[in-house]
Nucleic acid binder design. Sequence first.
RNA 1: GGGCGAAUAGCUCAGCGGUUCAGAGCGCCUGCCUUACACGCAGGAUGUCGGGGGUUCGAAUCCCUCUUCGCCCACCA
Length: 931
Amino acid sequence: MDKVYAPREIEARLYQRWEASGSFAPSGHGPPYSIVIPPPNVTGTLHMGHAFQHTLMDALTRLHRMDGDNTLWQPGTDHAGIATQMVVERQLAAEGRSRHDLGRDAFVAHVWKWKEESGGTISRQMRRLGASVDWSRDRFTMDEGMSAAVTEVFVQLHAEGLIYRGQRLVNWDPVLHTALSDLEVIAEPEPGHLWHLRYPLADGPGHVVVATTRPETMLGDTAVAVNPADERYQSLVGRQLRLPVTGRLIPVIADDYVDAAFGSGALKVTPGHDFNDYEVGRRHNLPTLNIFDRDARIVADVAADLAAIPAELRGLDRFTARKRVVALFEAQGLLDKVEPHSSPVPRGDRSEAVLEPWLTDQWYVRIAPLAEPAIRAVEDGRTRFVPESWAKTYFQWMHNIQDWCISRQLWWGHRIPAWYDDDGNIFVAANAEAARKQAHRHHGRDVPLRQDEDVLDTWFSSALWPFSTLGWPAQTPELKTFYPTAVLVTGFDIIFFWVARMIMMGLKFAGDVPFREVYITALIRDEHGDKMSKSKGNIIDPIDLIDGIALEPLIAKRTSGLMQPHLRNSIEKSTRKQFPNGIPAFGTDALRFTLAALASGGRDIRFDLGRVEGYRNFCNKIWNAARYVLMMTEGKDCGASGECEFSAADWWIRGRLQQAITTARESLASYRFDLAAAALYEFTWYEFCDWYLEFTKPVLQSPDATAAAQRGTRRTLVEVLEALLRLMHPLMPFITEEIWLQIAPLAGKAGATIMKQPFPRAADFSFDAARARDIELIKELILKLRNIRGENDIPASRRLEQVFFRNASAEQLATIQAHARYFDRLASARLQPFDASCDVDTAASALVGTLELYVPLRGLKDDLAAESARVAKLQERARKELEAVEGRLANPEFVRNAPPAVTAKARERARELERELTQLASQLQRLEKLR
RNA sequence: GGGCGAAUAGCUCAGCGGUUCAGAGCGCCUGCCUUACACGCAGGAUGUCGGGGGUUCGAAUCCCUCUUCGCCCACCA
């Protein structure tokens, strides 16, 4: 083995072996355990969020697989309708072409081709992370099977009246030319203006002032509304106004929706281009005028009822039109005033284009009937959110859920299984043939049909993912075995988009909740707490943490393909500052362990490179511990033959391992990966390496140790390490496998891979608490000695030949004498019973219980100032604590009310501290006397 | 407007059904290349646990309130 752990070659070799041997496929005979992956965009690349979630899913999968469960981690990718189409269209645009140049069929074929070429990136990256997904079951949302499930669900929901086609306002993206669902709208306040416009009365002098952020929409106004209780306007309700610019007549109406305190208290009503106005219009039977075309330009060809739009405005973009309309008002003296005003502007989450409420025909899911059982499923715990507080978020949205617009005017996606005849009749069917039959029945003859041009929202197919990937609508064995899945691991950003919809669809079509638990992970942010994004230039590619990357390539990566090229310089600067030497290679296990260690219950994780480095060091620590164990045991008798004699240290480390196993198991069961990681780290480093390995040295390297004792220690060494590797394997698959393959035979274990070995159970280890107890005393004595040594600057090379102790119990005496070699080796000290040769006056001393320890300093350290300072510090500390404890004991309420165990403990502690203080005081006195 | 989080050592975070709970990593200080590991070893320093109030024998931990920061939903044109 090399002195330093070199992950790169090991990782590649092991993953290939695992995959080739089919180790990822379900095979356990225990209860089924399944996780479906949140399908990443097929065209995308892995980001830190994926690495994070995949690490956790893989840890769970490996844990359950080791436990013997019939374990499936279902992989797959999502066609990501809008995102993918945009990427491909951008590529075409770079060649000076548009999708319309190609035509629908050729374009879709083009996207498929590109998917085949680039779709492998994600799976390659997942392999680098060690993801043990069953690749043989890889799925894509537009596969035949998935598409069949989509059609089946659509047809059935339609048959039940839960999918309908309707004309209403939608969020229209005038750049992408598609409708969007409410969830895809991001509304952030943006600075703008509030224009106060005068609308003259039609039948006399005077006017009403309306305030608006969107003056251009006045071309579609069909009323002005005031609050019915607003006395200022009561006399005007029912009268007509002459809408400027157009000359149309519109009524003044009264509606509670209007806030009398806002603006002028009079609201221009544009039912065709505002969601609230649309509702007002419906209540008052107002006409709805559509003044924009699909590009959100003022309609160029003029419908009869819009004839009043002046020619000069036709065809203008809405923002140009805005300026023109304002100018027209101003020219006519109808512009009352303009105020700066900030208001939310709705933008598409993908295109970032300003959306336009637009009247169109779209397909909707009537969602309330589906939501109701999904609410109950979470209420009664059939699906449990972890952390639980996310259930509130879920409920809040579900209780206010709106019908879901599922049609998109895109080409990439599942085409809607609906056909139209020339009369506008709709035939929804699984395929064209079935639709034709329906039409034939309806008409009594064959009629020409054309299929709906639209495709479905990407999330429609995602909603079916937990059962469609398992073969639904066919009742496959996989579906029976693995549905419902055990847990969904995902981020809170898609609770509405995805989690809620899966629960609704799962209950509706698969007859049960899709997962028993939803573990909501935190969001990975950069070191400043900012979201990682391409445009901020703060993205860290998980693969770069694994392999490392030099500064220049990193800068190139972060600054290439920027949507806003002007950010280039600042990104380069901050990158140079943060990573002056690029990023070193840390290896997969270090990254995975870091991600697990960061997975506490919070919502945000600030990614800290220092942590990765620390855990890279941890990998190296494990590696070297294994090297040591191998050196000590390879080719030697590890207890296979002959009696084993186990030392106190051997028993002690078993006990500590048991504790680590228990903590790790409990932590993983409750998704506290951070606590599991901490338990493993602490056991490995602070107990196994710092203490136990050191305890083995005097036994294994000393000629006077018996063969039985050496066998016992070797056996413990290999057994504990072997179990520890299994314990760590779910989080650190590579290093554990690499070492395990070498250690397992020594521990008497056979197997081709650690992956299929049982995850340790505390009960696997017999443990003798009484035998282990000696170690606590030994550790404490060694720590005191080291403290004295350190504070007095006595170099480690200087042996403490004479350390005296007195007031030891018989048991303590026996322990110390039996373990002389531990003190020799770990503290470089020799302990002996107190006698007259010990010069107490010039000795450093310490107290362990009643046992007094003396380290004569004469000849080692003649200046006693350091020792004085050390003792004074201890005294101060003890005095403070005693004060606190006595204060508590002096309180009669405490003595009366606190549980007896607590008061007894406090009294005991007080006695201890008093003893300590007495000793420290006399010590200090002696030291001071000599100075 | 409604809902949800967070505030603990210089930094990133544990601890939050109450009495050795004031912790970890990184950073910092002092010694050490002690044949598993300098990606290391040994020793050490560091915080009125955001402010205020309350409950209690006892609160970082429970309750109220304030301040600051963040997120989600709704959106008064």
